[in-house]
């Protein structure tokens, strides 16, 4: 049960959503765009988020697109993780999305919500980081397409009033060899100790991580180290782990030291498998 009241608006077009946001914002109602809503509801119940109005974007046609179009795969922000998992248009994305939360929750969680959420794991973003995708963003200044590397730095850097409409990915990337592995504390539901998504393009391995630090990331420095095939694999991995962009995460799922152990083992498995491809 949510202890406070908010209003609910279901937008049917991009301009309507933006208009609603601006108006509600000017009235001091701290509006939030609402996708699957799972995170907003759970944070609201425990007073960790406050809003007086939510704007549901699930009724906006552009946000529900999930199709190849003109050499691009378009993934609408309101597409559920289940749909992404079942309609395997981008197998790596399907794989990582099918490991988030649990199956029933994935019927509600959306790609946009997962990427833009406050929960730090945001595993849906990994595939897009690897595929150098573009993010289509709607906001008061119109609709803009931005490279993911520009807009996603630890988290989505959206301006007030902006929301993600779609993610565009070159079709070529959706066909590359890949591996994705999620390691949990125990069992097969829950947040990651380590999630690694990797793909191989032109003999070079690309790797993105979640659970390792307090944010998902892809690091060119780490990829350079890992692709240095003249060095033994285990040495490369040791080196790569010394170049993480932030300290290893320590939380209820794993201590930092144990994460390092899992990270190295998982990297070894992932790279061994990809190098054989």
């Amino acid at each position: 049960m949510i202890p406070f009241d908010f209003e609910y608006y279901k937008a049917t077009s991009i301009p309507e959503a933006i208009y609603l946001f601006q108006n509600l914002f000017l009235q001091g109602r701290n509006p939030l765009y609402y996708g699957g809503g799972t995170e907003i509801i759970t944070l609201a119940r425990t007073n960790r988020i406050y809003t007086e109005a939510v704007i549901d974007i699930k009724g906006i046609p552009e946000c529900n697109v999930f199709a190849h179009h003109d050499h691009k795969l378009l993934v609408g922000s309101a597409v559920t993780l289940t749909r992404v998992s079942e309609e395997r248009l981008f197998p790596l994305l399907s794989r990582t999305c099918s490991e988030a939360a649990d199956q029933t929750a994935r019927n509600k969680i959306t790609v946009g919500g997962n990427i833009c959420g406050r929960i730090i794991f945001r595993e849906a973003v990994l595939s897009f980081l690897l595929a150098d995708s573009d993010i289509l963003i709607a906001g008061p200044s119109g609709i803009n397409k931005k490279p993911i590397h520009e807009i996603f730095k630890q988290r989505m850097r959206l301006q007030r009033g902006e929301f993600v409409v779609q993610v565009h990915t070159d079709t070529d990337y959706t066909k590359l060899p890949f591996i994705a592995v999620k390691k949990r504390r125990i069992g097969s539901v829950g947040y990651p100790v380590v999630t690694i998504a990797a793909m191989k393009k032109e003999q070079l391995v690309r790797v993105a991580f979640s659970g390792v630090c307090a944010f998902p990331f892809r690091s060119h420095q780490i990829e350079t180290i890992l692709n240095d095939r003249l060095t033994p694999l285990e040495t490369r991995i040791e080196r790569a782990v010394r170049h993480l962009p932030a300290p290893l995460l320590s939380n209820t799922d794993a201590s930092a030291e144990y994460r390092a152990f899992v990270l190295k083992n998982t990297l070894l498995d992932v790279l061994t498998a990809l190098e054989e491809v």
Binding site: R185, G187, S188, V189, Y191, D253
Partner: peptide, 14 residues
Amino acid sequence: QNPRFRTYKDHRYG
């Protein structure tokens, strides 16, 4: 640190 099923792990199907 873990007063929820999200972080308090228990047996699930499987």
